[in-house]
Amino acid sequence: MVIDQIHDLQQVYRKVVHSMSRPGSISNLNNITEKLEDDLPCNHAFFLCALTVLDAEVTFHVVASEEKKARLIEILSSYNMSRIAPVDEADFILLLQDAPEYQMNQALLECKTGNLHDPQQSATWIIESGLLSNISALSLSGPGINGTQQLQTGIQQDFWQRRNDKVKEYPLGIDLVFADFSSQIACIPRTTAVTITEVV
């Protein structure tokens, strides 16, 4: 069975909107990811999120091991004709779990954050993450959160310090979409204050 570009992607979009407007809240894409085939270089939820936002009008940049990178670029551009771009120009940064750390750090440093006239011209990250859960590792607060929200993403602490540096000059910043192997997604937009509560 294949996914339905109209109705399935509409469902994915609604889940992403839900999670983006409520940072840290986890949405499940199980009923759609099971329609996908197994030979993808990334997890299914990640692939669906990428399909939902990418088309010929936007660019992306993949941060991953060489082998997976080539495969993902080939699949994505043949699915929706989106183009690749250098990291400092790409609208979407796609980060796979096996990405070398120095490449990830470099991408965090160089990706777009928009400018004060057009803060929307910033990069959105789609990140293949470890199991997402609402147990204490990060404490989130800000718009969309009633009080505080806990989230665990499995990504290293270092990442969060760099991310916090990147969103210091609000409204400039980057927005993150996390997708894990059990078809869950969670988002952290630039408005969310992230504090590390647990030393891993």
Binding site: V17, M20, S21, V53, P119, Q120, D175, P189
Partner: peptide, 10 residues
Amino acid sequence: RRATLKAVAI
């Protein structure tokens, strides 16, 4: 949809 996601983030 892309514009909406940006609007929610800012």
